[in-house]
């Protein structure tokens, strides 16, 4: 009696496991369907629409005429737009480089302090990371305006006689960009630096390596994934950023993000705006794919 019950249970168990394995594909598809459908309808289809729009023609009243045309893409090679593209890449690269130079010592420092202090410092990094980016721009506008805080401070001290005009210059745009994206550089840098085992550095020191040599030959190479991740997280959004150039560059600095936005909202040349947006998207995707191939996607990058 007992034995046969056990036998039935075992048989049932085997059956249910087999069923579980067989149903796993169907189950997976059923589970993924709602999310996949959502992203298909609200992400992929709109992007395909942009792709189609980019091949259409602008009508005389800013409407879209459905006539196939590749001019929107050839227009992007026009020196005027090529310059905007180059300038965007330049601003993105400069932002990335400056955030790296400012961020690396901080990330290194945090990775090396005792655990209790480290949690406090990490929290201090998270504060600007999660402070709304419009608010962070606003802070710099308050500081850099002609009648702003920096000028009033320097004038009061008597260090300058005439207020400095920093806001609405390319320098202001760069300051704003660096400030916006610095936390995005620091966090992945910290993540890769924190993983380096102390034992490796001790071994290097035991074998007679000077601190600089052990930094150049151990720490720096091991932090390369963090540098790549931070650079991508900085470069991509910096290139597409249109709010900082608008608010801090006084619409004098035009990046590719501004170009897209202006074509859609003010010039009403949707097909050309769509083509510019496609260009930005392909640049971004190419870099993201390169990164995921090279380093592998790390989930701790996201939060």
């Amino acid at each position: 009696m007992a034995a046969s019950t056990r036998g039935t249970v075992l048989k049932k168990r085997r059956l249910s496991l087999a069923a579980l394995r067989e149903s796993t594909t169907a189950q997976g598809l059923a589970l993924i369907a709602p999310t996949a459908l959502y992203l298909l309808v609200f992400m992929i289809v709109p992007m395909i629409l942009v792709g189609i729009l980019s091949l259409m023609t602008r009508g005389p009243y800013g409407n879209v005429v459905y006539r196939l045309n590749f001019d929107n893409y050839t227009r992007l090679i026009d020196p005027l737009y090529l310059r905007i593209l180059m300038y965007s890449i330049g601003v993105g690269a400069a932002t990335t480089l400056i955030t790296l130079v400012i961020g690396y010592p901080l990330a290194y420092y945090i990775a090396r302090v005792p655990a209790r202090q480290r949690n406090v410092l990490l929290f201090l990094i998270l504060v600007p990371f999660w402070t709304n980016f419009i608010i962070r721009i606003y802070a710099w506008i308050m500081i850099l305006r002609t009648e702003g805080l920096l000028n009033s401070f320097l004038l009061n001290l008597g260090l300058i006689k005439v207020p400095l005009d920093i806001l609405y210059t390319p320098t202001a745009v760069l300051i704003g960009m660096v400030y916006e994206f610095l936390p995005f550089m620091i966090l992945p840098l910290y993540t890769s630096l924190e993983k380096i085992e102390n034992a490796q550095l001790e071994a290097a020191a035991d074998l007679g390596a000077r601190p600089l040599a052990s930094f150049l030959r151990i720490t720096f190479p091991l932090s390369l994934p963090g540098i790549t991740a931070g650079s991508i997280l900085t470069f991509i959004p910096a290139m597409g950023m249109f709010v900082v150039p608008d608010l801090m560059g006084g619409a004098k600095t035009i990046l590719i993000g501004n170009l897209v936005r202006n074509q859609f909202l003010t010039a009403r040349d949707w097909p050309f705006g769509a083509a510019s947006s496609m260009l930005l998207m392909f640049l971004t995707l190419a870099m993201t794919l390169y990164y995921t191939r090279k380093v592998g996607f790390s989930e701790d990058l996201l939060v």
Partner: peptide, 18 residues
């Protein structure tokens, strides 16, 4: 991952067009 990987302006413009 796409919605986080792409710059906001790309997804924003796509939704706006749709």
């Amino acid at each position: 991952l796409l919605p986080l990987a792409l710059p906001g302006i790309v997804t924003g413009i796509a939704l706006r067009s749709a």
